[in-house]
Design a binder for these strands. Structure first.
Lengths: 104, 104
DNA sequence: ATCACTAAGTTACTTTATGTAACCAACTAT
DNA sequence: ATAGTTGGTTACATAAAGTAACTTAGTGAT
């Protein structure tokens, strides 16, 4: 056993990002506040899983959910400070992908 | 539709990292060459899925698999240059996690 | 009033991914 | 001959994700 235990903070961060769609939701919200349907059609995820992910992320303090009592009601999702701080991660993935992923 | 299509390179990179265990496998291999069983016990993944992931990563040119005809045969997994270049991503996740994930 | 429509989900059901544990081949040491 | 090792694979069980229909509350059109 070379590494009997991996840093739990790192492990938690990785497990967050290892969930399908998490990265794209954050990426999308880095462009600003968005509504449920906007997110759904922008990233092509099912309503069910988007709903799950947004709950996860809200619970982790990464996403903020705001109910605006317009009619019909508007629900806006945005990143908290913690969520915005993940831009550094998204950036590094983005720049790596530009350098190393070949087209088609 | 705000963003009808996300950059395909970025999307591919994200989909790679969104697969369970991928991040930890790369993290682990950043410490140097490792054998199948070492990886397995270090990150606590089942042999089946580890086998799948290593095949994926090999096929993506991220991991190199080397057979050493010792007895019993030794199989060493290591990162290619492309794989090593992902250190920047792992780093950013690591440093974010130190700043923002609170313990327990 | 009745019908159709919208946003933001939820529900029931199907398909895919992951986990578990047993097994295998080729060899070695006892 | 028997047991042990590495690097897997296989069959079966459970969890996660996809699909499509449905819901609730309100609005506007007929």
């Amino acid at each position: 056993m070379k590494q009997p235990n991996i840093c739990p903070k790192f492990e938690q961060a990785i497990s967050l990002l290892s969930k399908r769609w998490t990265g794209l939701v954050i990426y999308q919200l880095l462009n600003g506040t968005q509504r449920f349907n906007e997110l759904q059609s922008a990233i092509g995820v099912s309503g069910k899983v988007l709903s799950d992910r947004l709950k996860d992320l809200e619970q982790q303090g990464i996403v903020h959910r705001e109910v605006i009592p317009d009619t019909p009601v508007i629900i806006q999702y945005s990143l908290t400070t913690k969520g915005q701080s993940m831009q550094s991660i998204i950036q590094s993935i983005e720049s790596w992908s530009q350098d190393w992923i070949k087209p088609e």
